[in-house]
């Protein structure tokens, strides 16, 4: 039965309902994909590179060329970094408490922690 679930960007599908991400049974050469690359763009000289998105490319040179076409069509950048996605290691969101909470009770690391007399200028 077709699941009729329609809102913008979702037009239903003709076979089995929700997208089945485990079904790789195709004849179109699944497994031969070009590797995935993460793209970082420096928007202007002096600023840092910022993650813009990702794309597929056969090698680094092609990844940079494609990044130029996909992510800088409107002068969004002056420099591009690409790194193959498999080389990115990320912290686990489940560890967020353990990793970032300890800083919560160290207010003395911030200048506003210290009360100084009005008379003190330029500090």
């Amino acid at each position: 039965m077709t699941i009729r679930k329609f809102y913008y960007g979702d037009y239903g599908e003709s076979k089995n309902g929700a997208a089945d991400i485990s079904s790789a049974n195709s004849s179109s050469g699944v497994g031969s994909e070009w590797p995935l690359w993460e793209v970082f763009i420096r928007s202007k000289q002096g600023l840092d590179h910022k993650h813009a998105g990702s794309l597929h490319a056969a090698d680094a040179a092609m990844a940079i060329e494609n990044a130029r076409d996909v992510y800088t069509r409107r002068m969004e950048g002056v420099s591009i970094w690409v790194v193959e996605s498999k080389h990115i290691h990320a912290s686990n969101p489940d560890d967020a408490d353990a990793l970032y909470d300890p800083a919560n009770d160290k207010a003395y690391r911030h200048p506003t922690f210290y009360n100084l007399p009005e008379a003190v200028k330029h500090m």
């Binding site: 037009y11 239903g12 599908e13 003709s14 076979k15 089995n16 997208a19 991400i21 079904s23 790789a24 195709s26 179109s28 050469g29 699944v30 497994g31 031969s32 994909e33 597929h56």
Partner: peptide, 16 residues
């Protein structure tokens, strides 16, 4: 989901 799977869903008419 992989890019190829998505293309496949489009090309086989599964995805609209």
């Amino acid at each position: 989901i992989s890019r190829d799977e998505m293309y496949d869903q489009l090309h086989t008419g599964k995805a609209k």
